[in-house]
Design a binder for these strands. Structure first.
Lengths: 154, 154
DNA sequence: CTAATATCAGGACAACTGATATAT
DNA sequence: CATATATCAGTTTTCCTGATATTA
């Protein structure tokens, strides 16, 4: 049914997947840079933001839990956590039931910070989505994100 | 309280924007890692792939042109180009009309390589989109990508 | 002289791998 | 002993900033 090859060099052929791939690749690169740009101005890095929102949503977790959830190595997540602990956003307490584990949870300061909306105001991406996309467009984005998850979740 | 999952982080902002932002941030991180993963031994990096596809689509360009198009600094693009020149994929010739410029174009080898479909077969992302998303879903993705461009272009 | 192009040099960041100590 | 957690140390990648030479 599909004897067509994925031939990027033939513009006359229906290669919407290839075009989508290129657009997506470009978008990921730009988004990555944009997020990092914003991180310098007092914001948190994307990884840090993601961790805080995850802890807020799902409750306390260990470094390994978070690494699995974000799809990165425990060592890499360890560095993210260290930065958050240093910033006083996250507190680690030993698990009484398992001496290997350290349970990470949001600090009181961090909760206040979030409740005051400072997290949201400093969240460039959320701010921009809110400002630039209307409700209907946000729905399209939500649908597309679900599709994109299929691509990266193996 | 569980109903206020997202409200904690954004009491004065549309909660769906915050959730979308988190999902998108997570996706970008995972996609970035996925793309790098796939760039194995003889494969190209995402930036390199993007440059080749752009040259193929829009014709010869200078380092600065490409940097502008991809949203990065000329120095950064210079490194990408150097790698592609080293790999024999891209050739630079001086602009006779402007001594500052070097016009970059695809090498004969690179064109053959693309026409043989090897570029596409090595394009994990295009392959995966084709395999995992049907036509309708690809349209949703295309629409969403247009929206996302609005967020990063500015 | 000012602006654009390209490149050299050095740095920051976020991920990686490998090795190790400790607890289950 | 085998497995899981966490961390230390070093590396890689990809982008960045700053400075400089050259040409328009």
């Amino acid at each position: 049914m599909d004897d067509k090859r994925y031939d990027l060099a033939a513009p006359d052929m229906d290669s919407s997947a290839a075009r989508l791939a290129q657009d997506l690749r470009l978008l990921v690169g730009r988004m990555k840079r944009r997020l990092r740009e914003q991180a310098g101005a007092g914001d948190l890095t994307p990884s840090q933001t993601s961790v805080l929102l995850r802890l807020e949503k799902h409750g306390p977790a260990t470094t390994s839990d978070l690494a699995r959830a974000e799809g990165m190595r425990p060592q890499s997540m360890g560095a993210v956590i260290s930065a958050l602990e240093e910033a006083g956003m996250v507190i680690g307490t030993p698990d009484p039931a398992d001496g290997r584990r350290t349970i990470l949870s949001l600090s009181e300061n961090c909760r206040n910070w979030m409740q005051e909306g400072r997290a949201a105001r400093q969240d460039w991406l959320a701010r921009t989505i809110h400002a630039r996309l209307d409700t209907e467009e946000q729905e399209v984005l939500a649908t597309a994100l679900a599709l994109l998850k299929r691509l990266v979740d193996d």
